[in-house]
């Protein structure tokens, strides 16, 4: 079963390719700083319960909208809740939404894309449905889904996922379409490999590299869309602080206390910036052809 070993090896090589750099290549300063920033933000968010000075939900009527001080490092919001604690806690949920949405959309998109790419008869109908989904502006579709399903964490993740799925499907399908013509797939078919086996063992490894790149971009855009949904009034309910809904609540007090928007906005932007930069780096490493085109 030489063909099987081959595809195993290529999957293995792709995996190690992600962890180690090609010989002679050096990571520039940008990606290194991005990786460092992201690690700091993720660690600070995950460990928030250990070090933040206040409970993010405890209100204090005596300290409403207070300015930054030794007690409240970034001041407080309109209910007297500590902004620093809320922003650090908010990162946990925003990151969860980002990672959750990217995993779910990659998983769903992978399944549909493999099917569309492999079965010629299903390709047309599936792609027409995907084209239609892509024609609906993502943000409108997402607000509608949240408004109709309720402001829970799960419903926000689903609402962000659904508009992303067609993009993943297109990507997977195009990879499968070209891989399907390779001799090793023909050989596997001739040897009588079952359909699921060909799909999973021979075709799926090809999609790994582009999916990792796409997944990082989806993660970044999911964090961004969560913020926009909250801002428009269709986000996670405010008992669970997220970067998005802290900013959304801060809207009405913007002229008095711009920090309620700027601090979570800054962390969110830095986070998305580093994820995007790492995505670009991963793409350059995994796909030298793209690197040439982008310069």
């Amino acid at each position: 079963m030489a063909d099987m070993q081959d595809s195993r090896r290529s999957a293995f090589q792709t995996m190690t390719g992600l962890l180690s750099l090609p010989r002679g290549a050096r990571l520039g300063a940008g990606p290194t700083i991005a990786a460092f920033l992201l690690v700091v933000i993720v660690a600070a968010s995950l460990l928030a319960p250990l070090y933040v000075p206040y409970d993010p939900l405890t209100m204090d009527a005596m300290a409403r909208l207070s300015p930054a001080s030794a007690e409240h490092w970034l001041g407080t919001d309109q209910y007297g809740r500590d902004t620093f604690s809320r922003v650090m806690y908010g990162g946990r949920v925003s990151l969860l939404i980002g990672v959750g949405a990217s995993l779910v959309s990659v998983a769903i998109g992978l399944c549909i894309g493999l099917i569309a790419g492999f079965f010629r008869k299903l390709d047309g109908p599936i792609m027409r449905v995907m084209d239609s989904l892509m024609a609906i502006p993502a943000i409108l579709l997402a607000i509608a889904l949240v408004a109709l399903n309720g402001p829970s964490l799960g419903s926000v993740i689903i609402a962000i996922t659904i508009p992303e799925v067609p993009r993943v499907v297109r990507l997977v399908r195009s990879v499968v379409l070209s891989a399907r013509e390779e001799p090793y797939v023909e050989a596997a078919t001739a040897l009588g490999s079952s359909m699921p086996k060909i799909l999973i063992q021979h075709l799926m490894p090809n999609t790994l590299a582009p999916l990792i790149v796409q997944g990082t971009y989806i993660c970044a855009s999911a964090i961004l869309i969560e913020a926009i949904l909250s801002f428009l009034g269709a986000g996670v309910s405010t008992e669970i602080p997220t970067w998005g809904n802290i900013m959304a609540e801060g809207r009405n007090y913007f002229q008095i206390k711009p920090g309620l928007i700027f601090w979570p906005g800054l962390l969110l932007s830095l986070c998305i910036l580093s994820i995007n930069l790492l995505g670009d780096t991963a793409r350059d490493l995994l796909d030298p052809r793209m690197k040439k085109r982008e310069g």
Binding site: L224, I228, F231, M247, I261, G265, S269, I272, N276
Partner: peptide, 22 residues
């Protein structure tokens, strides 16, 4: 261009309001 992708539209809006309007 990387920065433009990373800041939510409304944050950019409020930054502009803060600088140019207020």
């Amino acid at each position: 261009s990387v920065l433009g992708f990373s800041i939510p539209v409304f944050v950019i809006g409020y930054i502009f309001i803060q600088i140019f309007a207020i």
